[in-house]
């Protein structure tokens, strides 16, 4: 059974068809990519899968369960995490607190235990604290635990966001342009990093990325969309030589 199965996904915003009849399948422990020119509808796909948009038509099945119609926080609780194209951290909270909140769906205590500081509360908080520190340690961010994310350099902020996504212990990780704004050597680091995450946590990764180097060296399978339509899918090698893809990226006239 595939981990994620999308069939016939269509999204209209008023008169604009942002996505039409998108179908896709992702197996456990795969790294796959979603590419396409700007405005092709890639982030729309991610927004639907993570629950921010309700698709006009179509079906998303995650881990054997239909998830379109669920709220994003419910989808997170099922084991999906996501990073954003523009970094979205909680900037006035320490890095450690950012990690803590990633365990929110599995808190294990109620409002009243927080107010009365019950045994249950203390045990749960200790557990959360340990998991948060573990996430930081794995991503080599322990030194920055008490920093505010807004005071960190851009590359580190990206890493904090990734650490936060991992702290929720997902089975599927959606990465929206993880290499955006990184230079070539940072991007190389990122490639190693993602590969390491993939092996270490045995998770599946689906990424949107513009830097071909990153996509080509990581992904086992690629889907290309343009103007909301799927124009090609296959291995990186097949995609590289597909005339439709070249046309979409470079335009008609240049060929």
């Amino acid at each position: 059974m595939p981990l994620l199965k999308i069939s016939g996904l269509t999204q209209r915003f008023g008169g604009i068809q942002a996505l039409s009849d998108f179908s896709f399948q992702l197996e456990e422990h795969e790294i796959v990519g979603l590419i396409g020119p700007n405005g092709a509808g890639k982030t729309t796909v991610f927004n639907i899968v993570s629950g921010f948009y309700k698709p006009t038509e179509g079906k998303v099945v995650f881990n054997g369960r239909r998830i379109n119609g669920l709220k994003p926080h419910q989808i997170t609780a099922l084991g999906m995490a996501r990073t954003f194209q523009n970094i979205r951290l909680w900037n006035n909270m320490t890095v450690l607190d950012n990690m803590r909140l990633a365990r929110y769906a599995w808190l294990g205590y109620s409002f009243w235990s927080a107010i009365f500081r019950t045994q249950r509360y203390r045990r749960a908080e200790k557990n959360i604290e340990n998991q948060a520190r573990e996430a930081l340690e794995m991503m080599e961010l322990t030194d920055y635990a008490e920093e505010l994310p807004k005071n960190l350099p851009y590359g580190l902020q990206r890493r904090v966001e990734l650490a936060r996504a991992l702290a929720s212990k997902p089975r599927l990780l959606l990465l929206d342009e993880p290499a955006a704004g990184l230079n070539s050597s940072d991007a190389d680091d990122l490639i190693h990093f993602i590969r390491w995450i993939h092996d270490e946590f045995k998770l599946s990764i689906w990424m949107i990325e513009h830097q071909m180097k990153v996509v080509m060296s990581l992904c086992q399978h690629l889907t290309v969309i343009d103007f909301g339509c799927t124009i090609a899918s296959g291995t990186p090698e097949e995609i590289r030589n597909n005339p439709d893809v070249i046309k979409a990226y470079l335009g008609d006239d240049t060929l």
């Binding site: 993570s50 979205r88 909680w90």
Partner: peptide, 10 residues
Amino acid sequence: QNEVAAEMMG
């Protein structure tokens, strides 16, 4: 601080 991130992180 960031409602979208909050919703996404559970």
